[in-house]
Structure formats: structure tokens, C-alpha cells
């Protein structure tokens, strides 16, 4: 079993890991020849399925080998991975590989950084393609003054290798067709407001887990509301966009679109969000929502799909503009709300 790659997009990887880490301590990572899949299924709360094409994170030197059709399943502690990647933020190069030490599997992240900026010698900044440090360094050293040295940091993240049958049961949650799908406004703004609401509600004593009510209609409106014994606050966004369904992606084609719940919802409600009709609502845990919002750091487009009284699914598209189409890396965050305790 071999896995070796060089990380070309450290920022994306770090931000992705940070987003996942806020939802659960452990991720199941499935690596194959074309994509990387991260799955976080905490005991309660929100599940994440993130599928990224290899080159969203790694570069062409990606190599993978295993007895099971070149698929490797790993269980990775996200906090350690995040911590390890953090030290790569200033790196000139970073490599990751699966290895073993004392019989225990681990992901070794090797990070090469230039020496600290306060080094009295000005030459360090001319980033040289990193090779082995040995020979090249010594020749430079002979000229004196050429102190372009590198510090090599190795972070070893303990992992567990999962056998194929251990991950057999893992499948993306299925859910009925959504009633409303809508493009969310800036997540930073949304997070700010929902965190504020959550705080206000938890500020009132004895409310352990404040529930936010999220609702959206097919006329570009999104409503965020918190309702406690003492107060009822809501914020409404209007003028958001409801993406059109692509008939080729919907079961039943054109017909299917016509019969789609969202088409029916479109006939109800209004664009100013003032009518009570046409909203698809879910109630979600405020704190859990705050964690979900942390995917905003990835800066992707986010489409929220509301299944009225049932579930909220967020699709986060990472490689937004450059690559329209299939190659997109999708982060699916599905949040079963727990009014009826239905898990998707």
C-alpha cells in the first residue's frame, strides 16, 4: 500500500481541513486514482461529504497503490492534520506520504521552508526549487554568504488504515428532492448574524441549545429566525438567486422538472418575502449551524437545498469560475434537523 503526493494547494487543503475539523474530530478519507473523498459523520449533527479532484490539492506526482484496486481508506484525526498543515502555511514545498513507524501507520507531511526572514543574509528569499538539501547546500556554502538554507519540518499524523469492508456501509445520505434551492448570501455575513442570534438566545438562561429557523422560498428570499420564550427575531434576505434545474440531472428530464417540488413551490410566495406561503423551513441547532458555516473560509459558492421540515443540504462548489462542469469539487454538508429526528 503506497500513497505519496506533493501538495500544491496548501491553502485549500488547510482550509478544507479546518472546515471539516469544526464538524467532527475524525474524517474518513478515501483516496483513489482520480479523487479524494473526505467524510465526516459525527455521532450527531451535520455530516459532510467532500469530493475533490486530485489536482484540487495535489499535483501530478500523485501516486497511489493498493491491493484493493488502488483505493486506500484512512481514518484521520482532523485536529492533528490541521495542526500539521498549519505549519506548512509558509512552506516552499510540502509532501505527504503514507508510511509506517513501529508498526503503526502514519501520514508523514514533509514541509520545506526557507529560513526565518530575520536572517542577516538577504539571499534567502530567492525561492529555489527544492531538491534534497545536501549537495546543493554544501556547494552554496562554499561560496560563503549564500546562506539560503531550508528548514525541514516533518509532521507525523497517526492514522488508521481501514479495510474495504469497514467502509462498505458508507454511502452518501439520500434525501427526497428539495422543495427550495437557493444560493446563499455571503457566508461571513450569514455566520455573523446567525452567531449573534444564537448568542442572544443562549444568553437567555436555561436555553441549552437554541434552534434557528432557516427558511427560503423560490423567489430569492432567505429568512433566518430565532424564537424563544422571550423574543422573536428574524432577518430576511431578498434578491438571492434560485438556480435553474438542469433537466439532464433530474430524474425524468423535462417532465421531472415540471413535477419537481421546487417547481410547485415557485408558484407560491413572493419576491419580497412578506407572504407566509411558499417557504420551506427547517429548524437547526444554532451551534451546529455555526460549525457548518465554517466552510465559508473556502470561499466557494454555496447552494442550500431545503427539504421542508426535513433536512437542509448545502452544496459548496470550490473551483467556482474556472472549471464549470463535472470537474468541480463538491463539498456536501447535510444537516438533518432534529424536529422529527429524521436522519437523511
Amino acid at each position: 500500500m503506497r500513497f505519496k503526493a506533493s501538495i500544491q494547494n496548501i491553502t485549500t487543503f488547510t482550509k478544507l481541513t479546518a472546515s471539516l475539523a469544526s464538524l467532527g474530530p475524525i474524517a474518513w478519507v478515501r483516496l483513489n486514482e482520480t479523487e479524494v473523498r473526505f467524510t465526516v459523520i459525527p455521532e450527531q449533527g451535520t455530516q459532510v461529504w467532500a469530493v475533490l479532484s486530485i489536482n484540487a490539492i495535489f499535483d501530478d506526482q500523485y501516486s497511489i497503490q493498493s491491493a484493493a484496486d488502488n483505493v486506500i481508506n484512512l481514518e484521520v484525526p482532523l485536529n492533528s492534520l490541521q495542526r500539521a498543515l498549519k505549519s506548512a502555511s509558509q512552506a516552499t514545498a510540502a509532501h505527504i506520504r503514507l508510511t509506517k513507524k513501529d508498526g503503526l501507520p502514519l501520514l508523514a507531511l514533509t514541509i520545506t521552508t526557507s529560513t526565518l526572514s530575520s536572517t542577516p543574509h538577504p539571499t534567502w528569499g530567492t525561492a529555489r526549487q527544492q531538491t534534497g538539501f545536501d549537495e546543493s547546500e554544501s556547494t552554496i556554502g562554499e561560496f560563503g554568504g549564500g546562506r539560503e538554507r531550508e528548514t525541514v519540518v516533518t509532521q507525523e499524523i497517526p492514522v488508521r488504515v481501514l479495510s474495504p469492508h469497514q467502509v462498505d456501509g458508507l454511502h452518501e445520505p439520500r434525501c427526497r428532492e428539495p422543495d427550495v434551492h437557493i444560493m446563499l448570501p455571503s457566508l461571513l455575513q450569514l455566520k455573523g448574524i446567525s452567531d449573534r442570534f444564537t448568542r442572544l438566545a443562549s444568553g437567555a438562561k436555561a436555553v441549552a441549545a437554541p434552534k434557528l429557523e432557516m427558511a427560503a422560498n423560490m423567489h430569492g428570499c432567505l429568512r433566518l429566525r430565532i424564537n424563544t420564550d422571550a423574543m422573536n427575531i428574524s432577518s430576511v434576505w431578498t434578491g438571492l438567486s434560485n438556480p435553474e434545474l438542469d433537466p439532464s440531472q433530474v430524474e425524468g428530464g423535462e417532465e421531472g422538472v415540471l413535477e419537481h417540488p421546487s417547481t410547485k413551490m415557485k408558484r407560491l410566495g413572493s419576491a419580497d418575502g412578506k407572504t407566509e406561503e411558499g417557504w420551506a423551513k427547517v429548524r437547526i441547532d444554532g451551534k451546529d449551524w455555526g460549525k457548518v458555516m465554517s466552510v465559508g473560509r473556502l470561499g466557494g459558492r454555496v447552494i442550500a437545498c431545503f427539504c421542508d421540515d426535513h433536512a437542509l443540504i448545502l452544496y459548496v462548489y470550490l473551483s467556482a469560475e474556472e472549471e464549470e462542469g463535472r470537474d468541480e469539487s463538491v463539498l456536501t454538508v447535510s444537516s438533518p434537523f432534529n424536529l422529527r429526528g429524521v436522519a437523511c
Partner: peptide
């Protein structure tokens, strides 16, 4: 518990530093 094992970090610096 293996996954709870803290990161092991090796920083390899040049003696000239």
C-alpha cells in the same frame, strides 16, 4: 486511541542557522 496520539514533529534545521 492511536488517533489521539499527538503529532510528532521533527524540525530539521541547518547548523549554520
Amino acid at each position: 486511541e492511536v488517533l489521539k496520539q499527538p503529532l510528532r514533529t521533527a524540525v530539521s534545521a541547518h547548523k549554520a542557522d
